[in-house]
Simulated assay, not measured.
Amino acid sequence: MTPERDSNRERTPAGATAAPRPRTPRLDQPRPPRRRIVPEWDPEAFGRLSEKIARFLGTGRFIVWMTVVIIAWVVWNIAAPHHLRFDNYPFIFLTLMLSLQASYAAPLILLAQNRQDDRDRVNLEQDRKQNERSIADTEYLTREVAALRMGLGEVATRDWIRSELQDLVKELEERRRGDGHAGHALFPAERSERPPGRDADDR
Results as ranks from 00 to 15, higher is better:
residue 150 M to N: 15
residue 185 A to S: 05
residue 71 I to C: 11
residue 169 V to R: 09
residue 115 R to C: 00
residue 185 A to Q: 12
residue 56 F to D: 14
residue 34 R to K: 12
residue 10 E to V: 00
residue 162 R to M: 05
residue 192 S to G: 10
residue 149 R to K: 13
residue 196 P to F: 03
residue 39 P to N: 05
residue 54 A to M: 04
residue 55 R to L: 04
residue 190 E to V: 06
residue 84 L to K: 11
residue 124 L to M: 05
residue 135 I to P: 00
residue 11 R to F: 06
residue 45 A to C: 06
residue 21 R to S: 13
residue 72 A to Y: 10
residue 91 F to K: 03
residue 179 D to F: 08
residue 13 P to Q: 10
residue 165 L to F: 03
residue 68 V to E: 14
residue 65 W to H: 04
residue 150 M to L: 11
residue 72 A to N: 08
residue 32 P to V: 03
residue 160 W to H: 07
residue 59 T to F: 03
residue 58 G to W: 04
residue 197 G to W: 03
residue 58 G to H: 15
residue 195 P to N: 11
residue 82 H to A: 12
residue 92 I to T: 13
residue 127 D to R: 15
residue 110 L to H: 06
residue 62 F to H: 13
residue 82 H to R: 15
residue 162 R to Q: 11
residue 143 R to C: 05
residue 162 R to Y: 04
residue 48 R to D: 14
residue 85 R to T: 03
residue 149 R to H: 06
residue 21 R to A: 13
residue 92 I to D: 11
residue 63 I to G: 12
residue 138 T to P: 00
residue 199 D to L: 07
residue 19 A to D: 11
residue 172 L to M: 12
residue 70 I to F: 08
residue 144 E to N: 09
residue 122 V to H: 08
residue 51 E to Q: 12
residue 135 I to C: 00
residue 60 G to H: 13
residue 128 R to T: 04
residue 120 D to N: 04
residue 182 A to K: 12
residue 171 E to L: 08
residue 102 A to N: 02
residue 188 P to D: 11
residue 136 A to P: 04
residue 158 R to K: 14
residue 143 R to S: 12
residue 58 G to Y: 06
residue 55 R to V: 06
residue 194 R to I: 00
residue 119 R to V: 03
residue 84 L to T: 11
residue 154 E to K: 15
residue 5 R to K: 10
residue 151 G to Y: 01
residue 176 R to H: 09
residue 179 D to I: 00
residue 21 R to C: 08
residue 4 E to Q: 06
residue 170 K to Y: 04
residue 116 Q to S: 12
residue 191 R to M: 11
residue 81 P to A: 09
residue 34 R to H: 05
residue 194 R to A: 04
residue 91 F to L: 03
residue 114 N to M: 05
residue 61 R to N: 14
residue 101 Q to G: 08
residue 194 R to K: 12
residue 113 Q to D: 07
residue 202 D to S: 06
residue 67 T to H: 06
residue 201 D to R: 13
residue 5 R to F: 02
residue 176 R to I: 09
residue 27 L to P: 07
residue 174 E to A: 13
residue 77 N to C: 10
residue 102 A to L: 09
residue 25 P to A: 11
residue 7 S to F: 03
residue 146 A to R: 14
residue 69 V to P: 05
residue 170 K to N: 12
residue 182 A to Y: 03
residue 171 E to Y: 02
residue 26 R to T: 02
